[in-house]
Computed example of a mutant assay.
Amino acid sequence: MGQRRSTNRICLCFSNDVQRRGHGTALFERLERLARLLGINELLVHSATDAAGFYQKLGFSPFVFDAGTFETVQMRKMIE
């Protein structure tokens, strides 16, 4: 039997007036710590095209997965 893959999703965005203040970086640092505690080893992101650089700075790399009908850059980060 194949291994079943569980997926949990968190959807969020920051409005323009609170961007570039460290909120996203702080959130992802905490999310990554929580993921490690829960035994999660992969984070996937549907990034807006103009935000892909932000995720790359956090260690995400472009990765193709089912994006549905969204126009996004799919990114992945493997964590230990």
Rank of each mutant, 00 (worst) to 15 (best):
R21H: 15
D17G: 04
T49P: 15
A26R: 13
M1E: 14
K57L: 10
T25A: 11
T69A: 15
G59Y: 09
T72Y: 11
N41H: 15
E42P: 03
Q3W: 03
E32M: 06
K77D: 07
L31P: 09
G2V: 03
I10A: 14
V73K: 13
R4N: 13
A26G: 04
L31E: 02
D17R: 11
L34W: 08
F63K: 07
L38M: 08
A26K: 11
Q74F: 01
M78A: 09
M75G: 00
F14W: 07
I10L: 15
F60C: 01
L43G: 06
E71C: 03
G68S: 01
L27A: 11
T49L: 13
A67L: 06
R20C: 11
I10P: 10
Q19V: 04
Y55E: 11
F28C: 06
L27F: 15
K57A: 09
E32T: 02
T72V: 14
I10E: 13
Q56S: 13
L44R: 14
R33W: 02
I79H: 10
D50P: 00
T72D: 13
S15D: 12
L31K: 01
F70I: 04
T25G: 10
L44C: 05
N16E: 14
H46V: 00
M75K: 01
S61Y: 05
E71H: 14
P62C: 05
Q19W: 03
I40P: 02
E42G: 05
F14R: 02
R30E: 13
M75Y: 02
R76S: 07
A52D: 11
Y55I: 02
K77N: 04
I10W: 11
R5S: 09
L44M: 03
A48I: 01
N8L: 07
F54A: 08
L43Y: 05
E42H: 09
R5T: 00
L58Y: 08
G68H: 00
R5W: 05
I10R: 15
E71K: 14
L34P: 02
T25Q: 15
G24T: 04
Q19F: 04
R9A: 12
H23K: 05
L37T: 05
Q3I: 11
F63V: 03
G53V: 01
G68K: 01
L27D: 01
D17C: 06
E32K: 08
I79L: 07
M78D: 09
V64A: 14
R30F: 00
V64G: 08
G53Y: 03
T49F: 10
L31C: 05
T7H: 15
T7I: 14
E32R: 04
R36S: 00
